[in-house]
Nucleic acid binder design. Structure first.
Lengths: 338, 338
DNA sequence: TTGTAGGCGTTATCAA
DNA sequence: TTGATAACGCCTACAA
């Protein structure tokens, strides 16, 4: 059933039906009602594909998610959900596209076939071939995180440098002299993952500035790895009294490793870092941390993208978020252990 | 740039270019190469929207996710990722559609505008208006979970009844006499959420059969709620020695509440249930549980859907999964506390 | 206030 | 082996 069917049954031209639906041209009360009756009776809905072809836009955006081999963190998950919700409010649909690994076909297909009006790229690297590819195609896009050449794209990001710097200052103010940064996986760092680099930079700068012994270590995005790393860390660095981290997925393991040695969190070992709010709140004890603003990131990403789609020539906009640290229960003055 | 442009530059007809690309008609080596050269030079890609209009299918499926107000559990998240991956392997794209709440517009738009060839519905209820709606439209779909009239749809589901029954048997075999079922939220149960109902059924039947005192309680899908519920549970039922649950999101809180009272998990309180594998493994101690097979659920859902799309008249197929219980570290013979 | 007709970019039928 | 052309279903000038 198509618009012609409706037209025939209501005894009008196809264009009249179209106008009756869109309201872009006045239609007499009488015909409008007759048309509407037929539409209701047949349950007619315009074919979105035909409409998209005619209008040259699909009212769909792509969300390019990280490869599936690395499990999505809670923060990323919240982000995806927020994107879908924000897009829904703007009557946009979201096409999910896995990237990396063997999924390049999917990525190519989505961004190259004019199936979407724009794209949001998650978890980009300092140099990222997907960004290059997207720039070639001319499809509007915004990235979560920024590349080495931030001025050439529209992006939203979290200021991990400043955030980790603040964490170190907070711990230093409490009197800590030995602070460890537990980073995300070494693999991410070597493949140019911005947050890792920038957290590291902020950490190094601030510990130097405050005359603190810095300890830098990586761990995979899961509790088991966090447990192993932390156990080792406590063993090799007996003077350690504070940890800061951007690896929320490892946190349960970090907690467990600490308590397992008989230490108390917040007393013998202070912890702080960056994590999803509900994640920080649901740990025991609740984590003092900068709450990663996934919602805000998502809302802004979608809005910036809509902006770019409707007005492709505007200069690139950027948004760097620096959420405050929520004081909860995991930091305090250093207590030697045992 | 369109197919006509390529045709012009290669000095052939548009149809020849089309056939050169699709291979659905023999094209001489010579012209094919000439065409390919032009395509490569200009970076031409066929417009997927036009193709979809012409072919009458979009090579896209919709994944209808639960309303955003209830945070997705780990199991659900894994499921979404698996669907996207499986679909990608079949060169299908996935359109995400939130349902429920104020998102009915999105749901309607997606399933009604011929934007997708089929849909997968997550978290359906025993009576579910989305199922009814989908049946009206005639769009092929498969549900995760089953309604009250399971024969009228294609579905995949987890056999919570049998799973919880097995858990009770396992605990009873160990000698437990007082077993509690911690269900998911009361709201889910009252809105006809199948897994809640069926877990409850299996629990009641098996406890009766084994002569065990059943205790049934609900909790929300988060650690805090699990903590509150469990604390209260231990208080009201001091003889309780075992818990079985289908609420994986509440587990950290359940654990915490138990140890907080001085009890040891696996000794004073045995726990078992249904949860995502990596979730069960990353708890301390690791949870003895039936590993919810999100991957298998997803793969089968996608394949059944593809089946239904290509062959809409086949009888409905169903798949009920009953994964075995993985023995880890949280069950043992009952030890009175203190 | 309404109708006619052309075109969005493909694929596929029918000729040559 | 290739070309011309008619759809797919919609929107929107342009006419009436």
């Amino acid at each position: 059933m198509d618009i012609g069917e409706i037209a025939r049954r209501s005894g009008v031209a196809r264009s009249t039906v179209s106008y009756a639906i869109s309201g872009k041209r006045p239609v007499s009360q009488q015909t409008r009602q007759r048309i509407q009756a037929v539409i209701d009776e047949l349950g007619y809905r315009p074919n979105a594909v035909a409409k998209a072809l005619k209008e040259g836009r699909t009212r769909t955006i792509a969300l390019v998610i990280p490869p599936a081999n690395t499990r999505l963190t809670d923060h990323q998950l919240t982000f995806v959900a927020s994107v879908v919700n924000t897009a829904a409010k703007a009557d946009l649909d979201v096409l999910l596209s896995p990237s990396g690994d063997e999924h390049d076909r999917s990525f190519e297909r989505v961004i190259t076939g004019r199936r979407v009006d724009g794209a949001i790229l998650m978890e980009i690297r300092l140099t990222d071939h997907r960004v290059t590819r997207l720039q070639q195609t001319g499809l509007p896009f915004v990235t979560i995180g920024r590349t080495n050449t931030p001025d050439t794209t529209t992006w939203v990001d979290i200021d991990y440098d400043t955030l980790i710097s603040r964490c170190v200052h907070h711990l230093a103010d409490l009197g800590h002299q030995h602070i460890a940064l537990i980073d995300r996986s070494p693999h991410l760092a070597t493949t140019g993952y911005g947050p890792s680099h920038r957290a590291h930079t902020g950490f190094t700068r601030t510990t130097t500035q405050r005359g603190i012994t810095p300890i830098h270590t990586h761990t995979h995005d899961n509790p088991n790895s966090g447990h192993t790393t932390t156990t080792q860390l406590l063993h090799t660095h007996p003077h350690l009294t504070a940890i800061t981290t951007i690896n929320e997925a490892a946190l349960p393991g970090i907690y467990h490793a600490i308590t397992q040695t008989g230490r108390t969190i917040g007393t013998h070992i202070s912890i702080t870092g960056v994590a999803a709010q509900h994640w920080a709140e649901n740990l025991h004890p609740p984590l003092t941390a900068a709450d990663a603003p996934a919602d805000e990131l998502a809302t802004n990403a979608v809005n910036l993208l809509i902006n770019r789609i409707t007005n492709p020539t505007t200069p690139h906009q950027h948004l760097l978020l620096t959420p405050p640290i929520s004081l909860r229960a995991t930091t305090g003055p250093p207590h030697p252990f045992p």
